[in-house]
Structures are given as structure tokens and as C-alpha cells.
Design a protein around this nucleic acid. Structure first.
Length: 256
DNA sequence: ATGGCTTAGTTCCTAAGA
């Protein structure tokens, strides 16, 4: 089965591209981020017409995550990360599909740094770690899929120098990501491409796509029972080059 | 990135993204 994470950067602006992807990509489960749409304006009819059911957690203008499944509606498990009740940003949605736990997450960007946005990012990562620990304790096959906004290694970016002051690759951001891996989660794309140089994001600005100046921030982390079933992982890079593309490319893992 | 796109919304500017 093919599981995808795709930051669409506005689902209303991207709906034609998303339907095209659903039609062509042969995906079983698709986790979406940055819907930039309220619950009421989520384009369910177009997604259903493409053969997918959906659960979504929207928000006006910003954020927003969804889980899509081919031929069925995912069963919701958790909406929002526990630990900060006053947090109203829609960034986490956990579902079950055919015995597999799948979470779509949109980790805070954290810029500018230092500042409250970076502090929020680190707190959010700590909350994610607590939830990830709870999933490990369940000993279920689980996939934490999303836009992590973390460049985990120097070879995960076209230029360390260009990004070194960015919140995406600060030592604190990397350490929090590394703690997830150390607790037992497998970075599926990294496992299949251990020497880096694989990008999932290319900025709209400064000709980044044309000169292949990207970085890897969209990750699919696997619990041990899911990692046992890992077959392959990759990026559907071609979709980044299409008209009206998101600045992220769909990133996937296939499991037995 | 000396910020040169793109999206959304209290829309003809501002905020946010990464």
C-alpha cells in the first residue's frame, strides 16, 4: 500500500492538481497539510469524485490537515495534539485505515527565530513526542506523516549556508526530531536514501525549482510494526514541476 | 535570502510561509 504526505499550500487553489494526483498516483492513503480552508469550505465533492473518502481538520486562512483513503472514509482517532488546550491551530489529525494508524501533521515553521513562533515550534515538538510515545506503547503499525518543517541533516538541503539561521535546521529543532527517531520511529525516506540529496520542497522564489535548490522537510515516520513492512519510499517530484504546483512535492512510502 | 513567489482575507495591502 502507498501512503502519501502532501503539503498542498491551499486546497482550494490546488484542487485541480490534487484531483490529478489522486487520479494518477495510485495512492491508498493521502495525508494533506496547509489546507488554508475552513471546515465548511473543504472540497469534499471533488475528492469523493476522485474515489477517496476524507476526514479533515480545517481552519480559516492557515494551517489545516486531512487524511484521505481510497474507497473508504478514515476512522478518526484524535483531532489536535494534547498538551496545550488553548492552541487553536489545526495541525494534527490521527485516523485509522484498515488497521493502520495514520496521522497527518503540520509542524510549526518556527520563523522568525528567536521568538514566540520558535518557542511554539519546540513546544509543539515536545507534544508530538508525547503522542508518538503513546502510539509506540500501543505497539500498532503507525505512520506519522507530514510537513515537519525540520531539515534533519546537512545533506537534506541544497545549501547549509543558505539555511543555517533558519528555524528549520536549528540544533533544537534537529534534536527534537532526532529524539523521535531515537525512541523507535523510522524515517522511511532516509532509510531508502541514506546519503541525502533528496528534496521534498522547492521555494517559489529565486528560481529554486529551476536550479534544484530544495530541501527535505516532508517526512513519513514508521512505528516498528510499520517499519517491518517497509518496501520503498520516494518523492513524486514531477508534480512540483506542473502548472500551479504546490511548493512541496508529494512524498510517499510503500508498505507490504 | 541583499527575500526576486504564492495564498488567503476584515482584499488593491498585509501576514505568513520556509
Amino acid at each position: 500500500m502507498k501512503i502519501v504526505t502532501y503539503n498542498v499550500n491551499g486546497i482550494k487553489a490546488r484542487i485541480d492538481r490534487l484531483v490529478e494526483y489522486l487520479t494518477e498516483a495510485d495512492a491508498d492513503i493521502v495525508c494533506l497539510q496547509e489546507l488554508k480552508a475552513s471546515d465548511e469550505t473543504f472540497p469534499l465533492p471533488a475528492i469523493e469524485a476522485a474515489g477517496y473518502g476524507a476526514v479533515w481538520h480545517g481552519q480559516k486562512a492557515w494551517n489545516g490537515v486531512a487524511v484521505l483513503a481510497r474507497g473508504k472514509t478514515p476512522v478518526e482517532r484524535l483531532r489536535g495534539l494534547p498538551g496545550e488546550p488553548e492552541d487553536e491551530q489545526s495541525r494534527y489529525l490521527e485516523c485509522e485505515v484498515d488497521g493502520l494508524v495514520v496521522a497527518s501533521l503540520y509542524l510549526p515553521n518556527g520563523n522568525p527565530r528567536p521568538g514566540p513562533k520558535f518557542d511554539y515550534k519546540l513546544r509543539w515538538m515536545e507534544r508530538l513526542r508525547a503522542r508518538a510515545d503513546a502510539l509506540l506503547a500501543e505497539e500498532v503499525p503507525a505512520v506519522l506523516a507530514g510537513d515537519y518543517n525540520v531539515i534533519a541533516n546537512d545533506d537534506d538541503t541544497f545549501s547549509v549556508r543558505a539555511m543555517q539561521d533558519d528555524a528549520l535546521m536549528q540544533p533544537e529543532s534537529r534534536a527534537a526530531y532526532r529524539r523521535l527517531l531515537a525512541s523507535g520511529w523510522t524515517d522511511s525516506l532516509r532509510t531508502r536514501h541514506p546519503t541525502g540529496g533528496v528534496w521534498t520542497f522547492w521555494d517559489y522564489q529565486a528560481g529554486a525549482w529551476a536550479r534544484d535548490a530544495g530541501f527535505r522537510i516532508d517526512h513519513l515516520l514508521l512505528s516498528p510494526p510499520a517499519a517491518d513492512r517497509l518496501v520503498d519510499a520516494g518523492v513524486d517530484k514531477e508534480f512540483r514541476g506542473r502548472e500551479k504546483a504546490s511548493d512541496h512535492a508529494p512524498t510517499w512510502v510503500s508498505l507490504r
